[in-house]
Amino acid sequence: MDQRSIADVTVLSPTGRIDLDTTPPLQDCLLPLTQVASAKVVVDFAGVSYISSSGLRALMLGAKAARAAQGRLVVCCLNPAVAEIFRISRFHLVVEVQNDLAAALAALSSSAAAAYRHG
């Protein structure tokens, strides 16, 4: 699981399928991050081809944890298939969805957005 920090935001970048088999490593990364007080976390879906309810469950747990810790969880770069699953599951009500990483960072932190712009 690729994980990096951009200013005060942590970006997770899972790849491939997110299903019953591959959700545990994502969840093991995501939950501790979202449990930190006031944490700002982005899950970048640019490399994700597919998500099942197992992955949605991990995002739900992350969103609940972030809310409890006064943090925020944002996702970005959903491909059309993943976006359709979010729509059917009404997951835009659960996590904030942004079109791309720049928008996700800008939604969370001006310093992270600036750091990303300047490479």
């Binding site: 099942s52 197992s54 469950r57 739900m60 609940k64 809310r67 059917i88 009404r90 009500l93 659960v94």
Partner: peptide
């Protein structure tokens, strides 16, 4: 339940909903 934010919704149950919808 599909309405409401993270605080209001249960963790499970989506798999069968997706199956039936798709």
């Amino acid at each position: 339940r599909l309405e409401g934010g993270a605080a209001d919704r249960p963790v499970g149950g989506l798999g069968i909903h997706l199956m039936r919808t798709l």
